[in-house]
Design a protein around this nucleic acid. Sequence first.
DNA 1: GTTGAGCGTT
Length: 453
Amino acid sequence: MMSKYIQVAEDENEESMEVPLEEDGTLLLSTLNAQFPGSCGLKYRNPESGAMRGIRLSDGRLYPPDNEWSNRMYVAVFPKEGNKKKEDLAELSSAAALRIKRDRSIKCSDLIVLGLPWKSVEDDLKKYFSQFGELLMVQVKKDPKTSHSKGFGFIRFADYDAQVKCMAQRHHIDGRWCDVRIPNSKVEAKDNLVNRKVFVGRCTEEMTAEDLRSYFNKFGEVVDVFIPRPFRAFAFVTFSDPEIAQALCGEDHIIKGASVHISNAAPKTYDKQQMDTRKGSLNQQAYSQGGYTHTPWSQGGGRGAAQPHIQGQVPPGVPNNMGMSLGAFQLNPAMIAAAQAMLSGQGGWGPVGMVNQPGGPTPVSGGTPLPPPVPTAVEAQTAQPTQQPQPPQSFGSIGSNQVSTGTVVSAGNNSFLGWGGNQGQEVPPHQSTSPGVGGWGAAPPKQGGGAWS
DNA sequence: GTTGAGCGTT
């Protein structure tokens, strides 16, 4: 007995939807497409093999596996990234389009265009930069009062290769040479070391940097290994690929017969209070001891002012002064200082306090010799929790009557999501509420005359 | 009504 509907979801973890079958028990691809725009097939997880199994498609009909759809959940299949042409993308809508679009532009960032002629307007930029690829956004920064150009602007491409092409050269725009660069505000986030660096706890003294490097190189290119001296039972390993680093977090690995624990080099949450505390005397203390600060384990405990004791709140990898770990190796003052510093709830790795932060502890420039705070100054800066990449903003304002002028969301007339063609018009509601995609610059509501009008 | 290194009123 055939069921008249089958359960289909966009993803295994997503909520499923009932999709109607035909009389003959097949599912029309067109029916599937109606609910899952852009989908090209179906699959389901085979419980025996654990693998996904594809559904036969012939002449626009999807056929039940072994003649029985059964009660299982099916997952819509979408074209792989790259198999789609830009033109085709314009026809897609909804979640499928958003997903592909997001994938395509995942590596793109806003680019600043410097040296624009005063007279250049957003439409000029759009015309010029479209030669490199589809544009998602164009802005010319203006004085809000006079609306005169400030001589620079921002653009964003849909495709990373367009961005690369564009940045590979200078640009002659309306009689002036202009430069396109990654904005300073994005640079830190881009090579945010925190995301690429892991904390390796429970290290033994036998583990050399080379040991760690060769071990972790199995997972991905290791670009740095740092072992604080004197020995403190932890280390940092930095990968070139943040994905690798993140994937390893939470795992235990055996190195030289010992179990090490890998965790994020940055706290997941950032607390202004903690940051302020960090800038205080605590850091001085820890710094003077060569202490590092780090709080991957400190969530939910050990925050606030300096704690006189570290009992019961010793981070993993740092032996406490109770129990058997005391005998494992010697506690030294630096370790205690490090633990104290960590437990004081300071966020982020790096030298204690941000040496480049105003108000932070100043690195001692004379007198007290200090151990090398961090491998590089860049790390010190990028280790700040405040500089975690920002999640994309929603398109909220675009869908409202604040529709931005001066903000391009699509090049040409085949507006990808439907906002490109008619600027200033209202966008369908389902687009205005789409979360987590894009978020490139809703321009000031006051500015009149959009780039595309 | 001017200007020419920079860094984005959300």
